[in-house]
Design a protein around this nucleic acid. Structure first.
Lengths: 380, 380
DNA sequence: GCGTTCCGTGAATCCATAA
DNA sequence: TTTATGGATTCACGGAACG
């Protein structure tokens, strides 16, 4: 395999270079092997249309973590994510963002993705360097990893910052494309996308090739929104080349920086196999809107149903009281609207929404009618 | 009306003050009129359980920027002044967060809400001051304002940072209450809630009383998750008193700082009208961690489980015998229900209560169910 | 072949308490 | 302060295994 990969790598490196005004060739559709800061220093000023960066997050993980079933959580323990202090991380961030800003065309823009570990440092430094933040985008993960110990809220999202080179930039934003992609509604700042798994996840010898591979759908939306066909996209932390693969599919040129040989090899093979999309296959990329689901607790905290309210069922045969956290209490039992309903009836299951009733304006109605009211208020 | 409000204000100010060890009375359930930094300076160290802050983020808006002391900052639009604006904002943020940290009890925590204009500055400074970020929470607005010009993504969320006073803090997190509130699924870091509108939105003379009034549902979830009944909650930017109203409803004490007389008046009237929930509906689902402990040996000596009983685990893959002292014996090993379970699986740890099963009336049940029976018998 | 069940796993700052 | 021990704790999805 190694030979075949090297052949392909050679072919990739021989890709036609773009010639700029300054007569400096831009090494387009190639992976630059090495540290991103020194590699970026070799590139000419104002030559890049868009930068997508997935820098190390500086996770600062503690000891091992086990799931409730005892299995081991495979954490990000790579050396490239280790920094001795915030000051060191800030210095690193300032350096690569300074180079990034130099490389951007005046109307270019940059995307950086991160988590609460690092994104506040990144955002602050972006602002300090003169970038102009356009949006912060929330990637709401459809299937995040749970919080196994029950100690915090499930960390179910990552944050992307989108910023132009300066306040004056006439940046690219394909408003119509985004609206079309979102069923004719304006694309919002929160994007629901699954994490990268299944056949899309790159593996070597059965184990994941990279610990933090991003889903192509994420890059697809980023590139479709903020670049045009033929633009040059730079990714300073190329990894296994998601940026390159999506750029090729969408007819954009790309440049990647990467230090690790293993990642480079995987990325080259992957991009070689990536095919430009035709119009018909674009359709399958559109994400469905998921049906709204309402937790009973949401009605309580939104004031649609006050804690202490009496609910009845089966014409008053059963009664229960709403508690502050959205649980129900009967004489002897506590449970969810579904669980308590089932328990009281001795039934295996119960739809609490239609089982429990509440008196509202002299009328006894199923609590499901409150859910409908809530949905009306929440939609749009 | 003004007279009635003043009467109520007087009554509020006469609320019983909590007396601390240091013999300094904490002005509980009162609004402190004045700049939050100077008002906070009057309060004693380590006296507050939780802080909720909705600080101003009046930068980059082309409008005025006021320094903490109220003096005016010239809003010139060149780069140099942009930096100076950030520096002023950072200084202000550092000052009030420093006071906030001093006031927090060692196990206290803080919430700060903001948007991309200021939240990166806030997060960075929180980290620099030694706060320990626990989650960043996305308030996903169900009904955001559209982007009228179609130049960016619809800004459809705000970000909250939840941080403990230090890395070592044993902060409050009511895991079970949150899980109950979310239909028995872990509460995630993205919260879908409507913006504050309709009858909840406070108005004076037909116009909204405050430009950024937060929905009570947001504070409800924050307080239910990270405080206990009787805790003291401080809000340095009290505005129209959403924090106070929800605190009163949920049986928490509160302190607010506010400079503007108009807001104070509206807030006092509002909190006066808020109804506290009664005790019983305030009770939330408790985690097992806070339940009384039962030694496995107690089940044996009480006859719930006879010595010699065979226990199984993982569908019969593991078996062990109960011994008279409450230890378990497998073929080659002896240990506690937890220790033996861990050893047999080669796992670092194991919850024996859910791991081991016993046949009882033809059904195979975890021995935890016996513990529940035992607890029922022992209670009362 | 098809439906069911089981198992693996993902950017994670992931325990509390007594001795 | 450190160490040992009890025992609390998970959601969605893909793919393999099974019947």
């Amino acid at each position: 395999m190694a030979v075949a990969v090297k052949e392909r790598a050679k072919a990739l490196r021989a890709a036609p270079a773009k010639v700029l005004k300054a007569d400096v060739a831009l090494p387009v559709n190639q992976i630059l092997r090495g540290d991103c800061i020194s590699e970026m220093r070799k590139l000419p000023d104002a030559s890049i249309d868009m930068i997508f960066a997935d820098p190390p997050y500086n996770l600062q993980l503690g000891g091992d973590l086990a799931r409730p079933d005892g299995s081991h959580v495979d954490a990000v323990t790579n050396d490239w994510d280790k920094f001795s202090s915030f000051a060191v991380y800030d210095q690193f961030t300032r350096e690569w963002l300074t180079e990034a800003r130099r490389l951007l065309k005046p109307d270019g823009s940059i995307w950086v993705i991160g988590s609460y570990h690092n994104i506040f440092r990144v955002g602050t430094i972006l602002q300090d360097l003169g970038f102009w933040i356009l949006n912060d985008i929330i990637w709401r993960k459809a299937n995040p990893m749970p919080n196994f110990k029950g100690t915090r809220f499930t960390n179910a999202h990552e944050t992307l910052i989108w910023a132009s080179k300066s306040e004056k930039s006439k940046y690219t934003f394909n408003y119509r494309a985004m609206k079309t992609l979102n069923d004719e509604l304006q694309m919002r700042s929160d994007w629901v996308l699954p994490i990268c798994s299944g056949p899309e996840r790159l593996r070597r010898n059965g184990t994941k090739a990279h610990p933090t591979q991003k889903p192509e759908a994420l890059l697809y939306r980023v590139m479709l929104a903020t670049t045009n066909k033929g633009d040059v996209v730079l990714d300073p932390f190329f990894g296994t080349g998601t940026t390159g693969a999506v750029a090729k599919r969408l007819g954009r040129d790309w440049i990647g920086c990467e230090r690790e040989d293993d990642y480079i090899e995987v990325a080259q093979e992957r991009i070689e196999l990536a095919l430009p999309l035709d119009e018909s296959s674009l359709v399958t990329m559109q994400s469905k809107r998921s049906a709204p689901k309402v937790a009973f607790g949401a009605l309580v905290e939104s004031g649609y149903l006050a804690p202490g309210t009496r609910l009845t069922a089966k014409k008053g045969r059963f009664t229960a009281t709403v508690r502050a956290d959205g649980s129900l209490q009967s004489d002897a039992e506590i449970g969810s609207i579904h669980g308590l309903g089932a328990k009281l009836q001795g039934a295996p299951s119960c739809n609490g929404w239609t089982f429990w009733h509440v008196e509202h304006e002299g009328e006894v109605k199923p609590i499901d009618s409150l859910r409908q009211l809530y949905l009306l208020a929440v939609e749009d």
